[in-house]
């Protein structure tokens, strides 16, 4: 999968569950369907929980990259 251009960015490093998910959700609400949000999440609980919650809300995870102790995700609004 090639590089996808993001329409918005959100760094959620150091943000606890479930606040990180809520922040991501609020950010996604500002976007149009089909637009892409880039998220940075800590490993551990955030990466265990946030992606599956985002999927459950009907959004699509386009890319996931591990960068040391955190993950960079690209999410397309559903």
């Amino acid at each position: 999968m090639g590089e996808v251009k993001a329409n918005a960015h959100l760094d959620l490093r150091g943000v606890m569950c479930p606040i990180n998910f809520v922040k991501a959700k609020l950010k996604l609400e500002t976007l149009e369907a089909g637009e892409v949000l880039e998220l940075v999440l800590d490993s551990g609980e955030p990466i265990q929980n946030v992606p599956k919650s985002i999927k459950e809300e009907g959004h699509k995870i386009l890319e996931v990259k591990k960068e040391g102790e955190h993950f960079r995700l690209k999410i397309q609004k559903g």
Binding site: G44, Q48, E63, K65, K66, F71
Partner: peptide, 12 residues
């Protein structure tokens, strides 16, 4: 599979 490694993070 894109090899994103989320599953290995998610598996407790």
């Amino acid at each position: 599979c894109t090899g994103c490694t989320i599953c290995s993070e998610a598996c407790k």
